[in-house]
Amino acid sequence: MVRTIALLVGAAFVFVLGISLFGTISTAISDPAPETAEHEFHLHPKDAELSSAGMFGKFDRQQLQRGLKVYQEVCAACHSLRYVSFRDLEQIGYSEGQVKALAQAWPIEQPGVNPDTGEAATRKNVASDRFPSPYANEVAARAANNNALPPDLSLIAKARHDGPNYVASLLTGYQNQPAELLRKFPDAKTPQGLYYNPYFPNLNIAMPPPITSDGQVTYEDGTKSTRDQMAKDVAAFLTWTAEPNLETRHGAGFASVIFLIIFVFLTIGTYRNVWRGVKH
């Protein structure tokens, strides 16, 4: 009885799949899916060779500080960093005093209330504050950016495939639309107000090129601020904001893995000892 019902149910599923398969094949022949510009011209990010990549990855503190400067002078005009506090910067080599001074001097103030009147007001940042958002709310952000919303950057390096490399490639990836693309896909011309960037999933990004010329940011450590260098430095900084515990994690990983490899051999030894003389 069970087997008869099973046979019928199985036959029904296979039959419907047969109809579905026939439909899929006939559609694929009569009406094949058109090729798309995104499919053909999208590029995977280049390897930015960040020191944090791989199992042995560690942050380069100098580079993180340069990246912070790029964020501060370029990105922070539009992008928030809402999960990162000023005090976290002590992890990338700043002293408590430097962090306080940096928070104090940050151009965007922290929203709050006026302690005397209770009205909405702003105040200077302190070390325990999160980085303030450049816009009061989403409507304000969209109004200032041609209806596009600049994403928060705290987690951007984990919120994109191959994030750290993606950030570096995207920032230097702006270019004119290739003639070949326009020849093959005349409808795919980059719309007014967007910018062609092959590293962006749909090729047309709303963000204007943020890094436009060498020397745009002046580095204090004497590193030459080429466009590539600035893109890599800010990618390194955003890798840190997304995963501030990366070095602790790698360190704990090595200790655990070495311990566990020894443990595996010990358990194998125990196993052999216990089973000695017992055929199995």
Binding site: G253, V257, L260, F263, T267, I268, Y271
Partner: peptide, 22 residues
């Protein structure tokens, strides 16, 4: 004893995932 070996290998793979590509 035999499960002990399995447990050790389980934790080794688990640790590699958690610490190196979470």
């Amino acid at each position: 004893a035999k499960d002990g070996v399995g447990v050790a290998v389980f934790f080794l793979i688990f640790a590699a995932l958690v610490f190196f590509s979470p």
